Computed example of a mutant assay.
Amino acid sequence: MKFYREDLLRLEALRLAPYAVRASRGRAYPEEESPYRTPFQKDRDRVLHTTAFRRLEYKTQVFLNYEGDYYRTRLTHTLEVAQVARSIARALGLNEDLTETIALAHDLGHPPFGHSGEAVLNALMQDHGGFEHNAQALRIVTHLEVRYPGFRGLNLTYETLEGIATHEPAYRPPSALVLGEGQGSLEAQVVDLADEIAYTAHDLDDGLRSGLLLPESLEEVELTREVSRALGLDLHRLEEFGRRVLIRELLGLLITDAIEATHAALEKAQVESPEAVRKHPKRMAALSEGVREKQKELRAFLYKRFYNHPYILRQRRKAEHVLEKLFAVYTTSPEVLPYPVQKSVEEEGLYRAVCDYIAGMTDRFALEEYARLFDPQTR
């Protein structure tokens, strides 16, 4: 038995909720669709095969890439977000393929060294249009990835582009990429929520594994205190297996609450279409009020004890120094840039071309490039 695209779309429509995205409105450049894949499956595969996606393996989540093989990278973070998002989407009857595609693409625009790198590039580009990782992700999939003869970018569906554009409410995307009133599809909202859930759990895990966070300090946080006590774990004697159990149960609790709270919001608002979701006054994918407040406390704890730990701050400053020096050299002496980047200077302008080049670097490449430019003994 073979399932053609039409068969897959028909089966998909039977199981999707009324508020789920059922079909695509198309692409900017008309093209023949795959005989055996839906448009959103085709989008997912295009994202997976990009250079930008592969580079995520060597980009920072919290720890720099060379600091250990077991810490999350931007790639493993992306995969965890996709898993959480699909779990929520499946339970709510959403379009799982669209959800997964948005999740896999949501961090394509991150520069080396995580949010520190983003802040540095934004400051350096203040007089030249700024830098924001959601905007850069859109730039990658619509312009920078060149893989097809008839157009630049990946020619993704409008729904996928909208999902990337509306991933974070703080980012204001171009209106042409938003199909409704600006809230985005529920699939996109679920990815945003899954992103928050995933990094809360796995950053806590990495902090404990590294020793920068002491297990007994989790007694200060209501959510981790409740979970550990429910499991019978002693935070003053937490070993590796106990840590794994704690993180697993915490993640499960947040996912379950996200499903139940979002479903309750949908029922209360009586939304019956994707358009109704987009037009709703506020985002519908959310945690319950009680769990949301507890998660906020946990995130505040992570910012205070982990993200702003002296060790992390020292590593962050090193990263900032590297990017500042690279940017200064490239913009004052563009002749040292690789020839393809020099060509893009003619098309994009010096500062945007340099910004694109640096944003595309991995942590490892940026450090190696810094050594090549500033260490006399490095060839």
Rank of each mutant, 00 (worst) to 15 (best):
D257F: 02
G207W: 00
E220G: 03
E181D: 12
R147Y: 08
D203I: 11
E275L: 13
I255R: 03
L223I: 15
I140H: 04
E249N: 15
V191T: 06
P215S: 01
L212N: 01
I259H: 02
D195S: 12
A170F: 10
E275V: 14
A230R: 14
H263M: 14
E162N: 02
T166M: 01
E145G: 03
A188G: 15
G150D: 15
A176L: 11
E222I: 14
L154H: 03
E275Q: 13
V191W: 06
Q189F: 11
V141G: 09
E168Y: 13
G232H: 05
P215G: 01
E219A: 11
L213Y: 03
P281F: 03
E267I: 11
G184R: 08
G252T: 08
E260F: 10
L177K: 03
A198P: 01
G180C: 09
E220C: 04
T160V: 13
D234F: 05
F151T: 11
G182L: 04
N155H: 06
V191A: 04
E220T: 12
T166V: 05
P274D: 05
V191E: 00
D203S: 13
P274A: 08
Y171C: 02
L266I: 10
T224N: 01
R244L: 12
L233C: 08
R147P: 01
R225N: 10
K282R: 15
R244V: 11
G252Q: 07
P173M: 02
A265D: 00
G153R: 03
I140N: 02
G163F: 04
A230D: 12
L212Y: 04
A165W: 04
L154D: 02
G150C: 13
Q270I: 06
A261K: 00
L251N: 05
A194P: 05
